[in-house]
Simulated assay, not measured.
Amino acid sequence: MFNLISYLFFLAISSYITIDVGRRCYNAGKTYLEYLLNDKNLCLTINRILLGCYYLINLGYIAISLSTWNKVNTMEEVLAVTAIKIGYITLILCFLHFTNIFALYFLRKNLTIK
């Protein structure tokens, strides 16, 4: 019973966070990509690819992480396990976001040197 509750909390919260952050990064990323690459069509294509990969990685991790849970016996464990798993999701989101920013920055830097 408690496992089902924790699964539902985790799926609802982590899916919302993933979709909301993805949408925000997609919208804000348009301007950043246009500044870096100076080509609107290429920027739109790259931004869509990044968004699709972002969703696939995060939603895949969310689905896989459900299989690693131990049995939850109390409501306190529901909150603790759910908070830890959501913390992992947010750390992954931060890592992916900053990796993309740095990769695009260094790509732009290399393109302007040539």
Rank of each mutant, 00 (worst) to 15 (best):
K85E: 05
N3K: 04
C94Y: 12
I101G: 09
S65V: 04
L36Y: 02
I49K: 09
A63E: 14
T74Y: 00
R23M: 15
L50F: 12
K114D: 13
I57C: 03
A83N: 14
I19T: 14
Y26T: 05
I101F: 11
A80P: 06
Y55M: 12
Y7F: 10
L91G: 14
T99V: 12
E34P: 08
L66A: 00
L79Y: 01
L51K: 07
I86H: 02
S65I: 10
K85T: 07
L11V: 13
F98V: 09
S6G: 10
L96N: 13
L11F: 07
F102Q: 06
L107A: 08
I84T: 12
R24A: 02
N38G: 09
Y35F: 13
R24Q: 10
N38T: 04
A83G: 08
L79P: 02
Y16M: 08
F98Q: 06
F10N: 05
K40R: 05
G52L: 02
C94I: 15
Y16L: 01
K30T: 11
G52K: 01
L96R: 12
L107Y: 12
I57D: 07
N38F: 14
L91R: 11
G22K: 00
K109N: 10
N38Q: 14
H97T: 09
I64W: 13
Y55D: 05
Y16S: 04
F106W: 03
T90Y: 08
I57H: 10
L33S: 04
S15Y: 14
I92P: 02
L56N: 07
N27M: 03
F10R: 13
K71M: 09
R48H: 15
I89G: 04
Y105I: 11
E76P: 01
F2G: 04
K40W: 07
L51H: 01
L91I: 13
D20S: 10
L8A: 14
D20V: 14
S14D: 12
F95L: 15
W69M: 13
K71D: 03
L91S: 13
G60S: 02
A103M: 04
V81D: 00
D20N: 11
G22I: 01
L44Q: 10
N100M: 08
T82F: 05
L111K: 15
